[in-house]
């Protein structure tokens, strides 16, 4: 082991860390933004709304992220109408392609998570909202979505970790994320242990930081489910 290789090239890893964080957070954010409306559509009874969303989820959950990324990065260049359109400068960029593939992928998984969470809303809550004369939109905003977010959090936290791990694929299409940095160092010095163990350590720290943050969020959101402490003052019934 030669730690000096890593110390001398820490700027490469920093660049990689920055790119990984950027790729993961942007794709997760955009994916989440689209996932919520898609999950609502997926739960609708109208097949015209429901079927396209189902097909989207089926495709993106059934195929490897690597293949999806290749389809976007290498695949779209096959079509002349894309090459001639104003979109080509975007699709030429590896960064954009990785971001697009990641976003679509995480969006499909997240939609499925929210679909389940929305479906699991207790009937009583919906009935109570209807009895109070809420419109469908108000009911979604005030009753269904807030509780669905809570139910979805444990599964969504897994998705966040999966996306962090999945983002290492970006290195395959020339992007310098953490894995990309490790591959550069490995090929420059032929020192696989130092290069990849550093990357592994970085990913592990990121994972554990995320798990810690999510745990805190869960404690906050699930405060009402926590066992109540014994010392809570009991209000006595008046004699």
């Amino acid at each position: 082991m030669d730690i000096s290789i890593i110390l001398d090239n820490s700027s490469v890893y920093l660049e990689g860390l920055k790119n990984t964080i950027l790729l993961v957070s942007v794709s997760l954010f955009i994916g989440l933004m689209f996932a919520v409306p898609l999950a609502i559509l997926r739960n609708s009874d109208n097949p015209f709304y429901q079927m396209p969303v189902r097909a989207f989820i089926y495709f993106f959950r059934g195929t490897p992220l690597l293949v999806q990324m290749f389809l976007v990065y290498y695949g779209f260049g096959q079509f002349d109408f894309i090459k001639e359109s104003f979109l080509w400068p975007l699709f030429k960029e590896a960064y954009f392609c990785a971001l697009l593939a990641f976003t679509l992928n995480t969006c499909a998984y997240t939609t499925e998570i929210f679909r389940g969470a929305i479906k699991a809303t207790p009937h009583g809550e919906i009935e109570a909202a209807m009895a109070s004369g809420m419109s469908r939109a108000l009911m979604l905003r005030r009753i269904i979505l807030p509780s669905a977010f809570r139910r979805a959090l444990p599964a969504y936290s897994n998705e966040i970790i999966f996306m962090l791990h999945g983002s290492s694929l970006a290195s395959v299409i020339t992007i310098i994320d953490i894995t990309g940095a490790a591959r550069i160092i490995n090929s420059r010095y032929y020192s696989p242990y130092e290069a990849f163990l550093t990357a592994a350590l970085l990913y592990m720290s990121l994972t554990f930081i995320l798990v810690f943050l999510i745990k805190r969020l869960e404690n906050r959101w699930f405060a009402h489910l926590q066992p109540q402490s014994e010392s809570r003052p009991v209000i006595e019934a008046p004699p």
Binding site: S167, S168, A200
Partner: peptide, 20 residues
């Protein structure tokens, strides 16, 4: 450890590291 490290990184580590 497995849950903390991406599959690809582990695979590259085994492939290149195992070689050395």
């Amino acid at each position: 450890i497995i849950r903390g490290i991406p599959d690809l990184v582990l695979m590259l580590l085994v492939f290149f590291g195992g070689q050395v």
